[in-house]
């Protein structure tokens, strides 16, 4: 049954080569913790992706209840946290997952750095990886405001004030983020849009580039 469906599609789209490019590759011994336990350092990239997937899924569920306006934002988060079935778990996963992503990405970056894996021919992948790092920090910054409690409010205020002190561009950055003169209704909707649409879009594009380059170039060889 499965095979005939596969054949039917393959006949039309010739997906076998595509599938092979994506999935059909070997895991060399030097990165396989089953052979050398110390090879667990090679897992942090995969773990970052795993947690990123958790972030995307939990975030999708959070938006079912979250309301990005200054009157209801806090109330909706409170409701999510205390009334919605499994709301505490979903919000907890998104909240702590944000920290975990940063930790995993940090460890992944260190592994790549100290094994010199970013050297030729993999320079571009390192640059893309750093862009992913910055996007993640951006997601962390914009997501921090959304619960609309005092901690969120004042951290954003200080953060944007710091950005505003940059010469020439500063006032424009502040204007773009605030959408007004203070952290207010506009800021919240902007941060929501950036957090939920702009940055994840950029993130997915960058992740795709990251993975395509890995498949093209393979994992760096043993030291």
């Amino acid at each position: 049954m499965f095979k005939s469906v596969y054949n039917w599609i393959d006949e039309r789209l010739d997906i076998t080569p595509l599938w092979r490019d994506v999935a059909d590759h070997e895991v060399p011994e030097h990165v396989n913790p089953a052979h050398h336990f110390s090879a667990f350092v090679y897992c942090f990239g995969g773990l970052t992706f795993f947690i990123t997937v958790i972030q995307i899924l939990s975030g999708m569920f959070l938006t079912m209840y979250y309301v990005p306006d200054i009157i209801n934002a806090y109330a909706s988060v409170d409701y999510l946290q205390h009334k919605v079935a499994f709301g505490q778990i979903v919000r907890g996963m998104h909240h702590f997952g944000a920290s975990l992503v940063i930790v995993m990405m940090f460890l992944h970056t260190l592994r790549v750095f100290f094994t010199g894996s970013y050297k030729a021919p993999r320079e571009m992948n390192w640059v893309v990886g750093m862009l992913i790092f910055f996007i993640m920090l951006g997601l962390g910054f914009t997501g921090y405001l959304l619960p609309w409690d005092n901690k969120a409010y004042y951290a954003t205020k200080v953060g944007v004030e710091i950005a505003a002190s940059v010469p020439v561009l500063g006032p424009y950055i502040a204007d773009f983020l605030y959408g007004g003169d203070i952290v207010g209704a506009q800021t919240l909707t902007r941060f929501f849009a950036i957090h939920v649409f702009f940055l994840p879009g950029a993130l997915i594009a960058m992740l795709a580039a990251h993975f395509i380059m890995i498949r093209k170039q393979g994992i760096s060889g043993p030291l």
């Binding site: 505490q88 702590f96 901690k151 969120a152």
Partner: peptide, 21 residues
């Protein structure tokens, strides 16, 4: 460990100590 949540944002609260993540 439930995810933390403080009190609703109050722009007039002058005593709050700002802290980023």
């Amino acid at each position: 460990e439930p995810a933390p949540l403080g009190y609703p944002a109050d722009p007039t609260n002058a005593s709050f100590i700002p802290m980023p993540d």
